[in-house]
Simulated assay, not measured.
Amino acid sequence: MSQPPVTTLDVRSAMEGAGALVRRSRPGEGVPEPFGRQFQSSAALLLVVERGELTVRVQRQEVALRAPGALLVRSGVTVSGWDGRSSDYWMVLIEAGLAEHIGTVEGLPMEVARNFDAFRDVMADLDEPLGLGSATAQRLGFLLRELALELEDRDSGFRMATRSLLALILVQLRRQQQLQMSREFSQDHVLFSEVLDYIDRHFDRPLEMGEIADAVGRSPAHLTTLLRRSTGKTLLGWVTDRRMAEARRLLVETSVPVAEIATRVGYGSPSYFTRVFGRHVGESPARFRSRNRRRVR
């Protein structure tokens, strides 16, 4: 099979307005247009390295891609510091309308069409560049070579072939995102258990968010983001929940004064504890105790 010529392939011309811009760069070439040394696009960027090594800076993070390797970057992210003079790699701009456009192709199985809906969610949730692994990079490289040949030859049926190849590329990206989500869920579950364990052991004293984050090896902002994404609740919310659970127990099962309960659950100010309790439970500690007094032994 002949090698595709080194040109920029505007897939939009074959997709009637919605598609992708594909460019292959071979060893010794500079960074091709329209990418430039510093590049920011309204489209997602897919990089696939087939030979050698490509180094780029994504925002402030330097990323080295060794063949076979691939990286997916969401739209709006600045990519700069390109160094791939000794490598053979693909750059693909994936427009937001591509998935929807392919999904409207007549006769496309509904299951495949749903992958394109999911792809839009992938790009919306992609906070960090997504590394795609060597096996996926090899598959993507093959699909891109086939795509380049179809667009160059433009034989009968090339539009349908182009759509099919782009569909397969999006399916590969969707599969990798699902795998990444599964890994992150497992990691987040372990992290969540560590956080709850630390809160359970230390909620009875003043507790800073930075202290909890340090204990589990995360920054406060990152930890709060992970917890909110996984549980819908912030780090402070989980601390407050644990304190309020203990406060309710003490109010119901003991006659300990409210001021002392405030201290036992980590609040230095009884009045502040009362305000937090009221917001959390819907009534004051005294009222809560009065309603449940019959349960005190």
Results as ranks from 00 to 15, higher is better:
E184K: 07
L47M: 09
L235T: 02
G28R: 02
D127K: 14
I212E: 04
R163N: 06
T225L: 11
E146R: 15
L179Q: 14
R26P: 10
F273L: 01
S269R: 09
H189G: 08
V63Q: 13
D241W: 04
L71W: 00
P220F: 03
L72V: 06
R289L: 02
L226Q: 05
T225I: 08
V190M: 06
L93F: 06
E146L: 13
F277D: 00
S42Q: 12
P206N: 04
V49I: 12
G210Y: 03
R295K: 14
T55S: 15
D83K: 13
V216W: 06
I261G: 00
N115R: 13
G17W: 05
S269C: 05
V73C: 07
Y267H: 10
E100V: 11
D88S: 12
R163W: 03
S164C: 09
V58R: 02
R205A: 03
A148L: 11
R51H: 15
L227W: 00
V11T: 12
E246R: 00
S86V: 12
T234M: 05
R289C: 00
H202N: 05
V31P: 00
I94G: 06
S41N: 02
V296K: 14
R174A: 07
R23Q: 07
T274D: 08
E16D: 14
G282L: 04
